[in-house]
Design a protein around this nucleic acid. Structure first.
Lengths: 162, 162
DNA sequence: CTATTTGCAAACGATTTGCAAAACA
DNA sequence: TGTTTTGCAAATCGTTTGCAAATAG
């Protein structure tokens, strides 16, 4: 499952935000810097694609902790703005470290065959969303957008001819 | 709940696609036209917003059937292209009748307070998706896009000041 | 020492599945 | 009649929660 995304040598998150900087944010929120939390943040720091709770759990080595602890922490970290939650419609939430600076808002391009996930840093023109919002009188409008398709590698692979 | 979206006086689903036309498609796929199926399609036909399995189940009156039967049929109907599946990230799939003609592709604007759902008939420029696809060498790219915000009615309501 | 957090097990809600009986074609 | 479908119950899966023991500050 947790296939390290090779390819696309540039563009890529793998935020080397120091752990200390992250734990510092925890302290500010009167949250404790525990072993499981450091381990989770560390796993997230070294992964380029969003991970599911289960994947994070699997990625924890010696620092293993209960799955429930991960679920609880992901909520906490999300609330504190340390991680961002994504939903690719496959029934499992995924999380990425939320580096405020770059890539604040972004989407993903998911391969429907091998599940490889690429980051898409740009988005459609603001005016479109603004138009949708005003047209219906909505305020505080945000959106959820993800792309799905077949990646280059899978295009080469014969595989089942759907 | 089912408030007809104002503005854009035309465009409005509430597809009065005759049941016979729908059941005909079933026959073509060597699927049987059963009571539950007709009832489900009928419920979908008279609703403007996508419904969850549970909502469909609740909407069935005398024609009640098992929830599992609905789940199974939604898969079947989706596979046959009779309905379209949507995911608003709240853990429950929703379905709409898929009228091929108009509104083939569309998105939704969901109120995060009252859950009212409006249909958004337009989309961002094609070029954006084409660019995302070619940039990464993906083919057969599609997308999932939904908007979330506060509807006019809820804006008026005092409610908890988040 | 005291509030926060963890592990564990049970609880949940959405969805799926096995299987024998019932319903279409 | 032969195949598809249904009802029912049990099983799965992701996620949540209660509670007492462990831990950070």
């Amino acid at each position: 499952m947790s296939k390290p995304c090779s390819r696309h040598p540039h563009t890529h998150r793998l935020i080397q935000q120091p752990l200390t900087e992250l734990t510092e944010k925890l302290r500010q929120g009167s949250r404790k810097v525990t072993g499981p939390r450091q381990a989770i943040l560390d796993v997230l720091r070294r992964h380029a694609s969003p991970l599911t709770n289960k994947e994070i759990h699997a990625a924890l080595g010696k620092e293993d902790c209960d799955l429930a602890t991960i679920y609880r922490n992901m909520h906490t970290l999300e609330r504190m703005g340390l991680v961002r939650r994504y939903d690719f419609g496959d029934g499992a939430a995924r999380f990425e470290l939320a580096s405020e600076e770059e890539s604040a808002h972004h989407h993903h391009l998911v391969c429907t065959r091998c599940s490889m996930i690429l980051e898409v840093d740009d988005c459609f023109p603001e005016e479109f969303q603004a138009s949708v919002a005003s047209r219906h009188g909505f305020v505080g409008v945000s959106h959820r957008l993800e792309f799905f398709g077949i990646c280059p590698k899978c295009q080469a692979t014969p595989s089942a001819t759907a």
